[in-house]
Deep mutational scan, measured.
Amino acid sequence: MSIQHFRVALIPFFAAFCLPVFAHPETLVKVKDAEDQLGARVGYIELDLNSGKILESFRPEERFPMMSTFKVLLCGAVLSRVDAGQEQLGRRIHYSQNDLVEYSPVTEKHLTDGMTVRELCSAAITMSDNTAANLLLTTIGGPKELTAFLHNMGDHVTRLDRWEPELNEAIPNDERDTTMPAAMATTLRKLLTGELLTLASRQQLIDWMEADKVAGPLLRSALPAGWFIADKSGAGERGSRGIIAALGPDGKPSRIVVIYTTGSQATMDERNRQIAEIGASLIKHW
């Protein structure tokens, strides 16, 4: 067993022997301040990774656009098919120029040779490549099948209805392509620590998230040296922004954090800054 596999296998073990965790309302004060600064709703939840206990939450059962955070769930569904012998990570998928959609920095470079399922998941999570996500959605049967996968996990809230990039439209009061912070946090925890996926697939999923290259201005910008984070960000229309993450000190994750916002007129930089400040408060009061 590799060191990384050992780390993920012992996530519940280490967490069980940690000192009790206590909620700190100071972080919620910052979440509410972010709402004021952005002029928009902000949803927040913080779960203990081992027990699933909610440590703090704000608007945990209000719907927010998922945006690209759905790509972690998508690759979880792909990995479940791999575990069941219905898919192979090494299978190569070929596609054409007509398949390319807006923001496809990886797939646009491989029109000639195609990409493997493993490479597509890596591109979808680490670079948020939209064509990679659409190609992977095709392998599982489309958005409705991802929703069905989530329902089978016990998540009857999260739903995907459309493809990239239309799913980022974020129309107010439109339930399409949305989740709730509580539902997303619980589902992410199941994917990373539950028995739904094999140990190898859980490790692969967290490795992809740990290698995320496009979430630097968010929670990662607030992390002290030595902290662990595996995350996936999302951005959408109407001032929408979000991030889902597993993080913790001492090089291992111990909490799940989900943050979503929508309806702001603020710039992307300002949305990023507010999420980073929430992260800084979380870490300060850990």
Rank of each mutant, 00 (worst) to 15 (best):
T126R: 03
G85E: 02
M209S: 11
D99G: 10
E270V: 09
V72H: 01
G194V: 08
T198H: 04
L55Y: 05
G76I: 09
V157M: 10
K190G: 15
R271P: 07
E169K: 02
W227G: 01
H24W: 08
G39H: 12
N134P: 04
N173G: 07
T267G: 09
E62W: 15
K252G: 00
A222P: 13
K190Y: 13
E166H: 14
A84F: 12
V72K: 00
K53L: 05
D155T: 14
S122E: 14
M184W: 05
P105A: 05
R92T: 03
T126A: 04
L49T: 15
R273T: 14
K232S: 15
L196F: 14
L79I: 01
L192C: 02
S201H: 11
G76P: 05
V31P: 06
G251R: 08
D231V: 08
M180G: 00
H151C: 08
L188D: 09
E56Q: 01
V72N: 03
K213W: 03
T112W: 03
T131C: 08
D99Q: 14
V257Y: 06
F58V: 11
G194Y: 04
A185H: 07
G39F: 02
I256G: 15
C121Y: 15
R255M: 06
T186K: 01
A246V: 09
K284N: 05
A183T: 11
T179A: 10
Q203C: 06
L28Y: 11
V42K: 00
Y44N: 11
L160H: 15
K109R: 14
E26D: 00
N173M: 06
L188H: 14
L205F: 07
E145H: 00
N130F: 03
M67C: 00
D155H: 14
L191D: 06
S254V: 02
L38K: 06
G251N: 09
Q97C: 02
S51M: 05
Y44L: 11
D161N: 08
I54D: 04
T186Y: 03
P65Y: 15
S51W: 11
Y103K: 00
L100C: 12
A235C: 08
H156Y: 02
T187K: 00
D155M: 14
V214A: 05
G39W: 10
G194R: 06
P25Y: 00
I256F: 13
N134G: 06
A124W: 08
G154Y: 04
V117W: 04
E35F: 00
I229F: 00
K32V: 06
E62S: 10
Y260A: 00
P172A: 08
A182Y: 06
G226A: 02
L79S: 06
A40S: 02
E119R: 13
P181H: 09
C121L: 05
I125K: 11
E61T: 10
A34C: 01
A266L: 15
R176D: 14
A182I: 11
Q274C: 04
